[in-house]
Amino acid sequence: MKVVYCGGCNPQIDREALAAGLPVDDPAVPEGSTVHLSGCPRACASGHRLVVEEGEQAGAGAGGASAGQDGPPVVVVAGELVDGVQTPSPELAQTVTRKLKE
C-alpha cells in the first residue's frame, strides 16, 4: 500500500498519526492500493480532487495513482473528508481501512 502525502503546509489533521493507523501490512488490503493523504480540504496530494475516479491519474510524478474498475483501491483523505464525505478525525483511519478492504 502506498501513501501519497501533500506538502503539509496547513494540516487540519495529524497526517502522521493517521498514516500510522493505516493497515500497511494487512494482507486483506489489495496490493497497489493508494491513499492520497492531504492535511486540509484543498486536497493537494490528489491534485485538488476529493475523489479519484475510475481510470483517472491523480497526484504528481511518482506519487500518482490511477483508480480502475478492477484495479486496486484509491482513497482520498483531505482534512476531515474521506472521498469527499465529512468524517470526524477519530474515525478517519477506520474509515480509510474499511474502504481499502471493500
Binding site: P41, R42, A43, H48, R49, L50, V51, A78, D83, G84, V85
Partner: peptide, 15 residues
C-alpha cells in the same frame, strides 16, 4: 487556484 473538484465532478473554491 486552491479550488477542489467535488465528488459531483464540479470545482469549488477554497472556502
Amino acid at each position: 487556484y486552491e479550488g477542489v473538484r467535488m465528488p459531483a465532478g464540479n470545482y469549488q473554491i477554497d472556502l
